[in-house]
Nucleic acid binder design. Structure first.
Lengths: 247, 247
DNA sequence: AAAGATTTTTGAACATGTTTAAAGTACCGT
DNA sequence: ACGGTACTTTAAACATGTTCAAAAATCTTT
């Protein structure tokens, strides 16, 4: 097990990732074989498995990396934009901008993500930490804006916005228009719609329907953002995987 | 290539499927190895590949089979129920009822389905026929009801209902509550909500928002149901795969 | 029924993800 | 420096999805 007491371990881990990414970019998921990665990193295949439980865990590490990039890019947005609409749009656009270089490859990423079965799905328990970190971003989107949200919705709004965000990414993955321009237009169109919906939800008019809709969400526990003090502490540039097998 | 000029071919195909399903039910997707299937069917592994391009194509055949079952079960519903709500709920419930025996296994099914990359995803070109057949069902749901739907929405409603239906299935796949009771409750709650939303959409109040929302859907071409006369003719109990490799 | 063409089956081979026992290396306390 | 402990690496092996050239079976034509 890679306990990293000896710091060389972390380097090796990073080396494997650095070896894997170009292979992925060149030949896609299939061509990125464990043997090729190992050779490129100057290791035997078995060693790679010492650091990554599975080939797909390498993908997951990429996922975590771009998530960090995204968080960084969001700081800027969240410091500037004041309205809920601008903040939301900014955060979502940042994600797409960050991911652009990897578009050709992201289908493989999403393949892992979309599989409900899989430990590495964003909805799974194993991805909880990453998910919560992403949801915290949307919590900040809401809190930092002047828009007030009524209590029952407020609890779920970060989770809902995260889901919206996942929807955008899903769209983007499928989007084969040049430069993924359709995705940008899609964002421009859906964000205002969503904001409007949130506004409308305040009208007493919607009371009963909203109530019903929110009651539904109780069946989606993973959408709940735990209280800030109960969350895992933020780690500096943590692209580290969970403990490896056997530990 | 399996041209099926000799009718024995179809039998063999069926035999492979019959051999595969129990293996799937017992040990899940992983344990259902091609070698095991072949042995069970009394063939060599290579022969199995003569009939199914890929292991996942076998899964797709299951998918097509339950779809046929579903269509059958829907006839009953669609002959009886008159209101839009009852018809929609009936069709969705039928799907869940049909799929119940396969719940343990459906994650593997959905794994294939959810992968955007994959030829066999319900959103892909290769699945168009199956998808259109499913959407036609929802077209019938709407047409057979007394509810009138305004023109711009009407074009997309079957596709939207199909997506709703896919959402329910997604929920069901994840639902590990006993007997999947959460799914049934989920249906009971979401269907009325959806119906209400359709009703509301008629209010002039919603004009602009609806217009914007519908404009969005132009980017989802796969949601469009082609005109009835342009559709592939219905085939009796067709669980057949598309032409095999090389042809 | 024989020859020819087409469809089906085989069995071995290949590439890849993954496991594992054993060997190698670094660190730590004495 | 030594010995022990924990960490890292290796090479070979395994199971599985898949391919393929050749053989066998079946059908068609003469």
């Amino acid at each position: 097990m890679a306990s990293m007491k000896h710091k060389k371990a972390e380097q090796t881990r990073a080396r494997i990732l650095s070896a894997a990414l170009p292979l992925m970019l060149e030949g896609g998921y299939e061509k990125m074989t464990m043997r090729a990665i190992a050779k490129q990193a100057g290791l035997s295949p078995g060693a790679a498995y010492y650091y990554f439980e599975t080939k797909e865990h390498i993908i997951h590490a990429f996922y975590a990396q771009t998530h960090e990039e995204h968080r960084l890019a969001c700081r800027e947005v969240l410091d500037q934009a004041k309205t809920l609409q601008d903040r939301l749009k900014g955060v979502v656009q940042a994600q797409i901008r960050i991911s652009q270089p990897y578009h050709a490859v992201s289908k493989a990423l999403f393949k892992v993500a979309a599989d409900p079965n899989h430990t590495l799905s964003p909805f799974s328990d194993d991805s909880r930490e990453l998910r919560h970190r992403a949801m915290a971003l949307f919590d900040e989107v809401v809190r930092g804006s002047k828009t007030k949200v009524s209590a029952p919705l407020a609890d779920y709004l970060p989770g809902l916005l995260w889901m919206f965000h996942m929807g955008i990414v899903l769209f983007w993955v499928h989007d084969s228009s040049p430069q993924q321009e359709k995705t940008w237009r899609f964002i421009d169109r859906t964000v205002p719609l969503l904001i409007q919906l949130i506004r409308l939800s305040k009208l007493p008019f919607f009371g009963s329907a909203l109530q019903a809709a929110i009651a539904l969400l109780d069946d989606f526990q993973f959408l709940r953002l735990p209280a800030a003090d109960a969350r895992e502490p933020e780690v500096e540039n943590d692209t580290t995987a969970p403990p490896l097998r056997g530990s």
